[in-house]
Simulated assay, not measured.
Amino acid sequence: MVLADKAYSSRVIRAHLSKHGIRAVIPVPADPRGHRLRRGSLGGRLPAFDREAYKQRNTVEWCINRLKQWRGIATRYEEAATVYRAGLLIAGIFLRSAR
């Protein structure tokens, strides 16, 4: 499942995700929604949107923003993937215990 904001609501992106069997939870902007509704049955059906799943997007963004406060993680200072992953895990432990 991909949770994304309205900026990623394009036919190309949705088709790519669908082709790879990935469910898209992306709201449709007001402009295309109104255009489809004005066209009536010729406008096609709006893509499905799961509001409950979309609420989880906030949690992911919160976590990413908190991780970016760690300079080594935000700038990808470490070249070795294992060292970078270790930094992510340590930061996650600190963030979890700070709650």
Rank of each mutant, 00 (worst) to 15 (best):
M1K: 09
M1T: 12
M1W: 09
L3T: 14
L3A: 09
L3N: 13
L3V: 13
A4N: 13
K6S: 14
K6Y: 00
K6V: 06
Y8I: 04
Y8C: 08
S9M: 04
S10C: 11
R11N: 13
V12Y: 09
I13W: 06
R14S: 15
A15V: 13
A15P: 14
H16Y: 12
L17E: 10
S18W: 08
K19C: 14
H20L: 14
G21S: 15
I22Q: 01
V25R: 01
I26L: 13
I26G: 11
P27C: 04
V28Q: 03
D31P: 01
R36P: 01
L37G: 00
L37P: 00
G40I: 07
L42W: 03
L42F: 02
G43D: 02
G44M: 07
R45D: 11
D50V: 07
D50S: 12
E52M: 06
A53K: 08
A53D: 01
Y54D: 02
K55D: 05
R57V: 00
W62A: 10
L67R: 10
K68H: 09
R71E: 04
G72D: 03
G72S: 08
G72H: 10
I73W: 03
A74F: 10
A74G: 05
A74T: 10
Y77Q: 07
E78W: 00
E79F: 01
T82V: 13
T82H: 15
Y84G: 04
Y84F: 15
R85H: 03
R85S: 02
A86S: 12
G87M: 14
L88F: 14
I90P: 01
G92H: 02
F94T: 04
F94V: 02
L95I: 14
L95S: 05
R96Q: 00
A98M: 02
R99L: 08
